[in-house]
Amino acid sequence: MRGQPSLCDVLTPQSLQEALSLRVAHPEARPLAGGTDLMVPFAAGRLPDRLFLNLWGLEELRGITVSDGEVTCGALTLFREIAVHPLMQREFPNLVRSAKVTGALAIQSRGSLGGNIANGSPAADTPPSLLVYGSELQLTSLRGSRWVPYADFHTGYKRSLLAPDELITLIRLARLGDGGFHYFRKVGTRQAQAISKVSLAAWARTGNGQIQELRIALGSVAPMPIRARGAEKALLGRSVTNPPLDAALEALQADISPIDDLRSSAQFRRKVAGNLLADMLRGLVSA
């Protein structure tokens, strides 16, 4: 291991209140939830942080709560908890599928939804699903709590609305009811334990042969997880059986801005993002 534990300190608050106080007292302390994103660069000696704020023990941040209109997940909700939750499986299948393809079982049993969001990786697996379900985040500091649409949260590569004194505390999903169409596909080349090259999630509702509601989001094709608003616009209100595929594909290309990196090429990402959109529309017809 190349990380230097002896040079590091970990602050472990006993309550959310204490955690928020420590956030103010030590703004340089890196919040540490499941640690699945941070421990890899740490072991490789590539994590610059020396002080960590350990959130793992904060029971206030755990648990999935279901009410009539919404589902609320504590920021420390584990991927595994989402994957096995019966209501999530029924009503938010994209989120369940994306949780199930995040890392390996060990990672899913330690990694958290809040951590996944806060880490801000454009390649993270759950954000596209969170985007298409219109989720909202509760950000909390000693100053109080505020709700922001998740779609507005990421502002650039690893940048977000989270203030230095805030923590993500809750993730809220409005229940969509039955009859929707859900699509999620991750392209990681390897069938398990892969970092995505492209991922696409979609949710739609059709009626009278038309696409009445549609949300599309992608991972690994921009500096952050994004909604494909251009492609959505090209398809909304259009025929399910004969959607304007070319226009939607063209709009999608304007929505995304992929790069070449070690995992794939910009060209591949552009092409496959389009293929996924077409695949999603094929599925919508036969749904």
Binding site: V40, A44, A192
Partner: peptide, 14 residues
């Protein structure tokens, strides 16, 4: 890509 996360050997699923 000298890491197992980006050098993709087959898993049992593959």
């Amino acid at each position: 890509n000298h890491q197992m996360s980006n050098y993709l050997m087959a898993t049992a699923a593959d």
